[in-house]
Simulated assay, not measured.
Amino acid sequence: MLKRWSAQRSAAGQPVAVGEWERAKQSYVYRAEIGVHLPLPLHGMAAALVASRLNESGLQPHYWCTVGEPVALAADLTALVWAEMNLCTGTLADAIEQPAETATLFERWSLTCAGIIHEHLAHLHGQALRALAS
């Protein structure tokens, strides 16, 4: 997620400075803190998008792992997508004042970046296969 954010910023002519990269890594990776820039109603829209993608992929929102512990796939993916949306929108989202602008921002993001959900699912699939093989 951070690598994609950095690449997008570089492509837009605004490369991520070393200090900014380290702060983002500390916050998102080590402390699991999400800087929320988007209005909370978008979290529900992100959850609905994840649920839709899981359904399209024939996946359930919850599974049980081999040791009997629950895997909340939908909730975990929603948290990941929410973090990515907030990271990528940053201060642009802070400037939003009208609900219609919020919906427009989400629609644009979901059209251009919703493939991220499938990338996360593919990565998870690969990890599951490696775990089953060992």
Rank of each mutant, 00 (worst) to 15 (best):
L38Y: 01
N55Q: 15
L73V: 07
V81G: 04
V81H: 00
R53N: 00
G44M: 10
G44Q: 15
H43Q: 14
Q26Y: 12
S57M: 10
L54Q: 07
R53K: 15
H37P: 07
H62V: 07
G58T: 08
P39W: 01
M85A: 08
N86Q: 11
A32I: 07
E56P: 00
L59C: 08
M85D: 02
S27Y: 03
P39H: 11
E84P: 01
A79C: 11
Y28K: 02
Q60V: 03
L80K: 05
A79P: 02
W64Q: 14
P39R: 09
Y63W: 09
N55F: 12
L73R: 05
A75Y: 05
L77V: 08
A74K: 07
L40W: 11
A46M: 15
G44F: 06
W64I: 12
G35R: 15
P41T: 08
G68P: 00
V29M: 02
S27W: 08
V67Y: 10
A24K: 00
P39G: 06
I34T: 15
Y30M: 12
Y30P: 04
V29D: 06
N55D: 11
L80A: 12
A48I: 06
Q26E: 15
Y30G: 03
L77F: 04
L73G: 10
E69K: 14
A72H: 09
A46S: 14
L49M: 13
V50R: 01
G58W: 04
S57V: 05
A47I: 02
P70H: 01
E33L: 15
V67G: 01
H62N: 12
W82R: 00
P70I: 00
E69I: 06
L77N: 02
Y30N: 09
V81D: 01
H37S: 13
L38A: 12
L42T: 02
A83R: 03
R31V: 09
Q60A: 12
L49P: 02
H37G: 07
K25R: 15
A74L: 04
I34W: 03
A48C: 12
R31Y: 13
M45C: 07
L42D: 01
L77R: 02
G35P: 11
E84S: 09
Q60L: 12
W64A: 07
N86M: 06
E33I: 13
R31W: 09
I34M: 11
W64R: 09
L49K: 04
V50P: 01
S52T: 08
V67P: 03
M85I: 14
S27C: 14
A72K: 12
Y30H: 14
T78P: 00
L38P: 07
T78Q: 10
L38T: 03
A79K: 11
A48F: 12
E56A: 09
H37K: 07
